[in-house]
Design a protein around this nucleic acid. Structure first.
Ligand code: MN
Ligand code: MN
Ligand code: ZN
Ligand code: ZN
Lengths: 142, 142
DNA sequence: ATCTACATTATAATAATTCTAAACTATTGA
DNA sequence: TCAATAGTTTAGAATTATTATAATGTAGAT
């Protein structure tokens, strides 16, 4: 992910106005080497602490969902109590560390292609996602 | 799942007192041919409509979580907005119908065994779950 | 510069879940 | 048999995440 991407263009392409708030959010989310996972709270913290940018919570929610709808973000369901988002929008699987509550991307090579032998009448497959829950070895789990 | 299971025994075995409320919930959840998936709301409806049993919401939550902790129920995360529970506590995969918001169990034979090639240092794998999201063929999806 | 549709914001509302503390009950063992 | 006790249920309040509202602000078009 190169520095100084043209976020204005990127937003215009999908019909979102490049407002100050959206551009700041783009910077925080996409102006970095690697993709990452975050909760709304993480993002608000990043914006206020690292970017010194106060954006109202409603706007953060609105913008995250706008980005999701436009395919800039993917929502990941791991924990029914919290929403995780992913700046990696390609199809991929995850490890979830139950100790730290951290999501870790799987590479292509980490898990063999999943073969679905059944299909539901009149339905098409939208996605196939694997979640591998891991936790510390020396600990009572579950 | 045979009729007239001894739920009193079952509860005592794991150190839960067999109260009227817990026994009613056992009946609704386990006194049936097939396992099934439900939300807390589904369960409250089942209890009040089919069983004519008014159990306070706090008790339903408490009891569901008590059952979960004892391994009588499994929580499934599909939708960050709602908790699903499963009376099938064995390791298995799911289809999720995005039109109806219904969960469908996969059989062993529906998905080949998942092979995880990577391991996270100091962590053991607790579970490997596949979620296949499906939706109507003739519809704008995602 | 003006207009208009879209965005942002503070705040209120909603929904799911958990907490609290008082009343209740299953179990124990005198 | 029957209190004592620890665990359970309950109504209602509190908390948390998220969404709605409606007033104000701003980007893009003319
Ligand atoms: Mn969402
Ligand atoms: Mn839970
Ligand atoms: Zn990811
Ligand atoms: Zn299931």
């Amino acid at each position: 992910m190169p520095k100084n991407c043209n976020f204005i263009e990127k937003l215009r392409e999908v019909g979102l106005r490049p407002t100050k708030q959206r551009l700041k959010m783009c910077e925080v989310l996409y102006n970095r080497e690697k993709t990452f996972h975050f909760t709304i709270n993480d993002l608000v913290k990043l914006l206020s602490e690292k970017m010194n940018q106060k954006i109202s919570l409603a706007t953060v929610y609105n913008t995250v969902h706008a980005f999701e709808k436009k395919g800039y973000l993917k929502e990941i369901s791991i924990d029914s109590h919290k929403s995780y988002f992913d700046t990696n929008t390609s199809a991929h699987h995850h490890f979830f560390d139950e100790d730290t509550h951290e999501l870790i991307d799987c590479d292509e090579s980490d898990i063999d292609k999943i073969n679905i032998r059944k299909n539901i009448a009149g339905k098409k497959i939208n996605s196939v996602e694997v979640l591998v829950r891991v936790a510390s070895d020396n600990q009572t789990q579950k």
